[in-house]
Design a protein around this nucleic acid. Structure first.
Length: 484
RNA sequence: GGCGACGUACCCAAGUGGCUAAGGGAGAGGUCUGCAAAACCUUUAUUCAGCGGUUCGAAUCCGCUCGUCGCCUCCA
């Protein structure tokens, strides 16, 4: 099998992946701040990393996947005067901050489960790692990379020579950046808070050597990644919009504190736009996953996301989404056809055996090339065509059938996650509403027969329905039914 | 203003130096079929925003122009 290549944001090119410990991969991905329901952007991001982790496992790596839950420290608006977003939500909902966190964390996992996104191995919470964060801040102070002003500790970007290496920014140029407000306490405008002094009314605060306060924006990721994965670790992932300042600051803190490299490979996924506009929490154009799931099949959302590359932006529009839905249905239909086919009385053809191998090889090549899911899906569809064709011509024997099923389960199922475990046949699914309309339809047809005096068939319908548990009663006001 | 990405058929979307420019959706024609559906076959970009340049050879590299978007403030 060819080598796995990953586009590394640090070097800005594809690199051959070499794990630090052969056979093992440690991956950390920036998780959500849980103060609201997850939206389609989260769906793209975490579906992408889900497939990355699934593929690493397909390659037989033993993967430890850590994704944090941010439940403290992120501020709205200006870094120094902004309000903690979780506190703000707590005030709006009139509940405890930790209730906000619980509520939306559960909501997040619920949505991810629906999208068939596997849970991370560890979901550490920022608020549960305050001592470690304090320790990091203290180390940086001791080593001279940080300074304290009135209960708040800042990281000095000028002390860390590599600051800007990920985002391609220059510390001196940042100084004159028009949108950075110079705050009087900071020695350099790009300096960022490691620890923030809390006002007495601030609901989330902890004791520290610098008084009561709470950790800065970036500390949690530095601390929790290295706590569970060591330093350096293999892969750090996150949204492209976090390259600066978040990831830049993570690198600065961690590398300054230990003198060691932080993470080998940086993976950044691109964003979802809605009708060409970025979908953001601060903009009010975002579509929550819960809303989307009311209208769309979760697997179709997943398929839609995977039909573009993780590093490409993806525009969500009704027509694009619908095309994805149709494409997924085509795949699922073909998959079930293969599963149900009875491959007997046949004239097997070796060409199809070859097609199975070709597909497996192509799938692996495409995924090895920086997790190219669109190309992997293209290979899947080509294979599907060959499968349908072989079934049409009755050229598939049971051995081919079972190996074809196995490879589809491993690739489209286990890696792309397009076959939800326990998926029932597409032709057998119905919910309560569907059953109701179906019984009503039978009643309507039966009444038509009655009006045509075709009582034999009308009675048979009533009898057969009763046998499967639906009792009909003809009343003056029409036919009623109940489920026995 | 600084940094960066992108512009490929009717729509979505791969391809980033060289075999016929993937795949999905939509459209058209056909096979099959009582009728549908599904499936299969054929078909829809001599051309990759535009203009120059490098090269034996470019959608792919370089320059400029136009357009779209992201980051520089929390954001997946």
């Amino acid at each position: 099998m060819p080598d796995l290549k990953i586009y590394n944001s640090l070097s800005r090119k594809k690199e051959i992946f070499k794990p630090i410990h052969p056979g093992f991969v440690g991956i950390y991905v920036c998780g959500p701040t849980v103060y609201g329901h997850a939206h389609l952007g989260h769906a793209k991001s975490y579906t992408s990393y889900d497939v990355i982790v699934r593929f690493l496992r397909y390659l037989n790596y033993k993967v430890r996947y850590v994704q944090n839950i941010t439940d403290v420290g992120h501020l709205l608006g200006d870094a120094n005067e902004g309000e903690d977003r979780i506190l703000k939500q707590a005030r709006i909902e009139k509940i405890e901050p930790m209730e906000v966190v619980e509520r939306y964390m559960r909501s997040y996992f619920e949505d991810m489960d629906a999208l068939n996104v596997l849970r991370p191995d560890i979901s550490p919470r920022a608020s549960a790692h305050i001592p470690e964060q304090i320790e990091l801040v203290q180390t940086l102070l001791d080593k001279g990379y940080a300074y304290e002003v009135n209960g708040t500790v800042y990281f000095s970007v000028e002390k860390f020579k590599d600051y800007g290496k990920l985002s391609g920014r220059d510390v001196n140029e940042l100084k004159s950046g028009v949108r950075i407000n110079v705050h009087s306490d900071k020695r350099h405008p790009a300096d960022f808070a490691l620890w923030k002094k809390a006002e007495p009314e601030h609901l989330m605060q902890w004791n520290s050597p610098w008084g009561k306060g709470y950790p800065g924006w970036h500390a949690e990721c530095s601390v929790m990644s290295t706590k569970y994965l060591g330093q350096p670790f293999d892969i750090h992932g996150g949204g492209i919009e976090n390259i600066f300042p978040h990831h830049e600051c993570e690198i600065a803190q961690s590398e300054a504190a230990t003198g060691k490299e932080f993470a080998h490979y940086w993976i950044h996924n691109n964003m979802i736009t809605v009708d060409g506009q970025k979908m953001g929490k601060s903009l009010s154009n975002f579509i929550t996953i819960k809303d989307a799931l009311k209208k769309y099949d979760p697997m179709a959302i997943r398929f839609f996301v995977l039909s573009s590359h993780y590093r490409s932006p993806l525009d969500f529009s009704e027509s694009a989404r619908e095309a994805g839905q149709k494409g997924l249905e085509r795949f699922i239909e073909g998959y079930h056809r293969l599963r149900k086919a009875s491959c007997v009385n046949l004239k097997p053809n070796g060409i199809y055996s070859q097609a199975i191998n070709n597909y497996k090889q192509r799938f692996e090549e495409e995924m090895n090339d920086d997790f190219n899911s669109p190309k992997a899906i293209a290979a899947l569809f080509d294979f599907l065509k060959e499968t349908n064709s072989a079934l049409d011509k009755n050229e598939m024997d049971q051995e081919m059938q079972s190996s074809a099923l196995k490879i589809i389960d491993e690739t489209a199922g286990n890696v792309l996650g397009l076959i939800k475990p326990g998926t029932t046949d597409v032709f057998g699914q119905a919910d309560q509403k569907d059953i109701q309309s179906m019984v009503n339809l039978l009643i309507e047809l039966r009444n038509k027969l009655r009006s045509e005096k075709n009582f034999n068939l009308a009675d048979e319908i009533r009898k057969r329905l009763l046998e499967i548990g639906f009792e009909l009663r003809d009343t003056a006001s029409g036919t009623e039914w109940k489920k026995n």
